[in-house]
């Protein structure tokens, strides 16, 4: 659902590598060739990819929680079926990405462990609560909308398994955004209370959605290398601007107001000028100070621990059957 690089200012330490191999690799990537699992790659490329892809996968999995919160309270059977399908898609996206990341030599258990121990990050957006039904609309429209903006260019990312996973994800993501916008559309055309609910959801999700594109370019030290390696294809600020330009007219069309007094169409630039994002809040949420960060991790740890007996039983059962089959031969 999203791919903000939250690695902060840490620069990857240099590892001694064969300069001829590095040069050949850089040439291939510059030519827009795809790198496949068994191809030689610099250690830093592998590490950056594992971090980015696993963060992305974790975000899909944790992203099921805020929406799962509303499945049992969806206002109609139609909405419930749609929301169930969407949350199931998020699980699927997490699985595509985990299996793509595993091709780089990191096991699924290692990634799960990194998430549950708090070592790995996931998108800050999921550490905000879903207070009303309109939040489900706002998430589909804005959060999935921002995710699409991030993900579409990644279909051409240099690592083959990642690019292929992104193609599949992007195909499915568009339904997520449209169902969310449809919810907002209906609420915005509803009673006064429903209109207030829709506006309140937009007010609360707008800024966190802009944060999904990551820190401003001048505070994003890894951007240059990631763009050279085609792991990233546009800068954070470019994508953020694109998102604002596309989303503002969508809000206006259904009579909602984007909560930014500085928002103004700039004729000369052919784009919207908009206010400053509160980066203090962003970094606080990255550090785990989001309103529901603790609940999110507690839910994941509980699901993992409660499922332990199922994983063990299935494994032991399979081993027993395999042994019995072998004995019978």
């Amino acid at each position: 659902m999203h791919t903000t690089d939250m690695s902060g200012n840490k620069k990857a330490e240099a590892v001694a590598e064969d300069p001829a191999k590095v040069a050949a690799f850089e040439r291939r990537v510059a030519n827009d060739e795809f790198i496949e699992p068994k191809d030689w790659m610099p250690e830093a490329y592998r590490r950056t990819l594992v971090r980015q892809m696993s963060q992305h996968a974790h975000s899909e999995i944790v992203g099921m929680l805020p929406e799962g919160n509303w499945i049992s309270r969806a206002p109609s059977l139609r909405r419930k079926a749609i929301l169930l399908a969407k949350v199931q898609d998020e699980a699927g996206h997490g699985l595509y990405l985990y299996s793509a990341a595993e091709t780089l030599g990191t096991s699924r258990d290692e990634m799960t462990e990194a998430l549950l121990s708090g070592k790995a990050k996931y998108s800050t957006i999921f550490n905000y609560p879903t207070l009303t039904w309109a939040d489900i609309g706002a998430i589909g429209w804005l959060v999935d909308g921002a995710a699409i903006m991030n993900q579409v260019p990644l279909q051409r990312t240099s690592y083959g398994p990642y690019a292929r996973a992104m193609v599949r994800i992007c195909k499915e993501e568009s339904f997520h955004q449209r169902q969310g916008y449809e919810i907002m559309m209906h609420l915005a055309a509803g009673t006064e209370a429903q209109q207030r609910m829709a506006q309140d959801a937009l007010n609360r999700w707008w800024w966190p959605s802009l944060m999904m594109f990551g820190p401003p370019d001048d505070k994003s030290p890894n951007t240059e290398q990631s763009m050279r390696w085609r792991i990233k294809r546009d800068t954070n600020d470019e994508l953020r601007q694109k998102f604002v330009d596309i989303t503002v007219p969508q809000a206006e069309a259904i009579g909602l107001t984007v909560p930014d007094p500085a928002l103004k169409w700039n004729e000369a630039r052919g784009a919207y000028d908009f206010g400053d994002v509160d980066w203090e809040e962003f970094y606080a949420v990255v550090k785990g100070e989001g309103p529901v960060a603790k609940e999110r991790m507690q839910a994941r740890v509980k699901a993992w621990d409660d499922g332990a007996w199922v994983r063990d039983a299935a494994r032991v059962h399979a081993e027993k059957r395999a042994a019995a089959k072998l004995a019978a031969e």
Partner: peptide
């Protein structure tokens, strides 16, 4: 947390 050997095999 389970150790790596307890992970279900990959298909």
């Amino acid at each position: 947390m389970s150790d790596a050997s307890k992970e279900w095999p990959l298909w």
